[in-house]
Write a protein that binds this DNA or RNA. Sequence first.
DNA 1: GGGAATATTCCC
DNA 2: GGGAATATTCCC
Lengths: 204, 204
Amino acid sequence: MSNQDLNIFPHLKVNVPSFLLKTYEILENDSLTDLISWNKEGTSFIVFKPSDMSSKVLANYFKHKNYPSFLRQLNMYNFRKTRNQFGQSEFRHRWFKRGLKQQLNHNLSRSTLQYIRRRNQEESDLRIETKESSQELDNYKREQESLKQIVKDLQETQIKLQEDLNFQQEQSVTLSNQNQNTLQVNYLDYLGNKLNLIVIQPKV
Amino acid sequence: MSNQDLNIFPHLKVNVPSFLLKTYEILENDSLTDLISWNKEGTSFIVFKPSDMSSKVLANYFKHKNYPSFLRQLNMYNFRKTRNQFGQSEFRHRWFKRGLKQQLNHNLSRSTLQYIRRRNQEESDLRIETKESSQELDNYKREQESLKQIVKDLQETQIKLQEDLNFQQEQSVTLSNQNQNTLQVNYLDYLGNKLNLIVIQPKV
DNA sequence: GGGAATATTCCC
DNA sequence: GGGAATATTCCC
């Protein structure tokens, strides 16, 4: 099922995130109202049977069946969780309401998205704080450079060592096969694996 | 199937990315060798039937069945694609080889991986032009710590590698003697070289 | 082949 | 509840 198939807002140019579309779809699915549905007013939705969400809902709409992942996404989009008087989890977001689909001669979902994006933006802005002396910064920069050079040297040396060790092991294997001897293990394959697969080109 | 089930490196404390584990698993699956398998030397792997990958391979190992997504991941982990003489796609990464599983018997300390991860993060942060110096300073401080740690790790690993290499060489010599084989290499010269290589003593 | 947005997982 | 790593999608 492609995103396009699920687009309940075809007249909008913006891409509504798949997660929101799918969650809305779930709430439109009448066969699921025992497990999850809008509240009476259609201003929030309630999960009645979290334990059944996994196989009966999530698996059919998402690429997983983990309820916590569903929660994580709701959280991501700023839904707020409350408990109602029956102890049920109720999730609400000021733009996410029943009938959303019909109301869209207004650009509700657009504002939702803008809201979300703005929020993300502000978050990274928040990380910007007061500065300290550029003197100190310079010192760190310089020390950094020499450390990086050392790391680079060490890495090069290890790569060479590894090649040697590989060669050596091949030799031993050959000899050992003739001889029935046992071999030792090799350490840097692991290291190389880590360092390279995960990309470690020291930024110089 | 959880990540744990797939962990072919159970003795490692670090997490090997799921994608790598699964790709390795695929290559270990004998029933798939018609579609995808190691090359003769076990130094790369070949996709023989890209068209069958989707339903017969990917769907069983990943949360999708899109061949392009598989390619994207290979790309992400720096695998290089080439075409062999039969026009087949061959993927190779210098540390990703048949038998990898057996070779991985060493622990690199967790901090090395943390360094790598943090560094990736900072790299993307670097693209934020608006970054100010207090944050920058912070990053430097943190990276400094990590670099020191990684230098330490590398040195330790280096020492172990060296010991292994020495051992390995003794083995070979012994084996070789028993075998009446003549070896191509002169081990003493070789060892001498190694000792030179390893003498990098960064002042930390 | 890779940047970037979104989804999923893992962890505190 | 949310930060961060990894996976998947989408797009150039």
